[in-house]
Structures are given as structure tokens and as C-alpha cells.
Amino acid sequence: MDLVVNGTRRSVELDPRTTLLDALREHLGLTGAKKGCDHGQCGACTVLLDGRRVNSCLILAITLQDSSVTTIEGVDHPVQDKFLEHDGFQCGYCTPGQICSAVGMLDEVSKGWPSAVGDAELTDAEIRERMSGNLCRCGAYPNMIPAIREAAAR
């Protein structure tokens, strides 16, 4: 099957049971997306699929013929520099997922998608609510919020 990954068309032969996450990590050499739970519970595997953030462990790769996938290796976004500036990570394992999720989330906000918080502006409460699918056991949350807020303003 064919996938467009970070702008490049890649042909790959896959078991029908292979998830998008395993296709990236084990077949395409892209290990930036992480496997934290393999059940869509932690967000470490978040990538952008046709621009939208998804848990890549929950999608069978075979369903994605010709889809466009952006992984952390293909992301170039101010949120990355802001994570560095604010120490928005410790062990780094959830970080690619947090960053891809933040990029996808900011796009959702710009399109006017609602959240459970319902603030008109992108408040810290909005960011926290919208980012809560991405777990961080190191507890770097307080540093990620200003990083994402400042990246959004740029």
C-alpha cells in the first residue's frame, strides 16, 4: 500500500493487522511517534492524519491508502521552540505526541471547533481541556501550557 508520510510517498507491504503506529515505527523507520499504551489512552502516538490529530495506535494502516500522515519528524512549528524555552518536557517520551496534538489542536481552535470548556478565547483552561488526551507522567504540564499559549500567539 501507499502512504504519503511527511510529504513523501512511501510504498510498504503490511500485515492487515498492522496499526499506523507500528507501520511508522517498525516498517518506515519513523520512531518519533511513541507507543505508550497501544490502546488510545495516553496520546503518545499522536500524529496528524490529513491534518487532523489522531491516535495512530488505534488505526489500521491498511485503511489509509494514499492518506497523508505528518509525524513529529515532519513537524516544524513554533510550539517546538516554545517547549524548549519553557522546559515543556522531562523524559521526552510523551513529547512528540504532545507537540503533534498541540499543532492539531491549534488548527481546531482556528476553525472554531468547540470544547467542553467553551471559552471564547484560547484560555489556559481551554488549552488544558483540549490537551487532556495527552498524558505526561513526569508532570511537565505547567510548562507546556505557556509554551502552547505563546506558540498560538505567533
Binding site: 515505527r25 523507520g29 519513523l30 520512531t31 518519533g32 511517534a33 511513541k34 507507543k35 509525524t71 513529529i72 519528524e73 513537524v75 517546538q80 521552540d81 517547549f83 524548549l84 524555552e85 522546559d87 518536557f89 521526552g92 517520551y93 513529547t95 512528540p96 507537540i99
Partner: peptide, 20 residues
């Protein structure tokens, strides 16, 4: 800032299950 920070925000830092 963390020495390995740039690798971590670009997905270049390798963990145990990620070595070819």
C-alpha cells in the same frame, strides 16, 4: 536548557525499542 532538548522535540531521541 536540556542538552538533549532539540532531539526530544523533533522525535530524534531514541529509546530502547527504537534502534535499527
Amino acid at each position: 536548557g536540556r542538552v538533549e532538548g532539540p532531539d526530544k522535540v523533533r522525535g530524534a531521541a531514541r529509546y530502547a525499542a527504537e534502534y535499527p
